[in-house]
Amino acid sequence: MKKKYSIFLLLLVLAITIILFMNKDNDNLKSNNKVEDSYKESIKPINSLEDSYMNFFDEKGHLFKSYSEEQLKNLLIDTNLYKRDESEDGEKPFATFYDENGINLEPSEEIKAEMKKLSNSNEFKLFIFRQSSISSYIPVRNNTIFSKPQSIIIEPTDEFKSMSIILENSSGNRIGRIVLGNYLGGLIVPLEAFESEDSYSIQLVNNEQDPIYLNGGIVIYK
């Protein structure tokens, strides 16, 4: 009788031990899942539009157009035009030479195809600017007056809260302002809404305290 009772106690202790270990494993699994979910939430994809915005203002500062996240999604672009070139074997070239518009003088076939597409088979001209940081503001191409700008592509290195794109005519009068932020990836900013002016200069203004870092950008104009 005592022997049977001892065996029963042993089995009971063993069962309780197994249950406790299983509960501990489940708790660890839940904890690991929470950490993994939190990690995933903290990482945004390369092209992210969460909380992104783009607002257009006229010369009097009145808001006349806003883009939703879904609309901005259709304006994302992946381009290599302002990124440093690589040779066919993946090596960085010793030196790359550009013309006055920032265009590679010896572009690869891939770059040629991209330029042809963005210029609509050379209907438009391209001005390419590369890596830069904006502490206060940057006059694109030293305040050059662009003829009938169609759009400007801007790709930040890191997400920023707020940047303004200031447009001024040849007399120095502001004809419009675009405010955008909270996005990653190359974004095409359309400028057709300001075509009432034949030509104007473009300035990129940092609206926050920390510097804004750019991979580069492209002005598409006539």
Rank of each mutant, 00 (worst) to 15 (best):
E69G: 09
Y213R: 10
S196M: 06
Y67I: 05
V189L: 05
I175H: 02
E155R: 15
K40V: 10
E88C: 02
L49P: 02
N173V: 07
K40D: 06
L105S: 10
S199L: 02
E114H: 06
P149Q: 02
S6K: 11
E192N: 06
N207C: 01
K34N: 08
G102F: 05
L187V: 11
L187G: 09
G172K: 12
I218P: 00
L180N: 06
Y213W: 05
F94S: 13
R174K: 14
G172L: 06
P156N: 12
E70D: 14
N104L: 04
L105G: 12
I166H: 02
P149N: 00
S87G: 12
S31M: 11
E91I: 14
P149G: 03
I7R: 09
I7E: 08
V13F: 04
E69P: 12
E86D: 06
P139Q: 01
G181T: 09
A95T: 12
D99S: 10
N55A: 09
E36N: 08
F194M: 09
I166K: 04
Q203K: 15
N47S: 08
L191F: 04
E41G: 08
D89W: 14
N33P: 02
F94Q: 10
E159S: 11
N28A: 12
I153T: 09
E192A: 06
R130K: 11
N74E: 13
I18E: 04
L167M: 11
E192R: 08
Y53E: 00
S171E: 14
I7F: 11
I138A: 03
N104S: 10
I178Q: 04
L12V: 11
L11E: 08
E59V: 01
S162M: 07
E168V: 07
L10Q: 03
E208K: 07
L63G: 10
R177T: 15
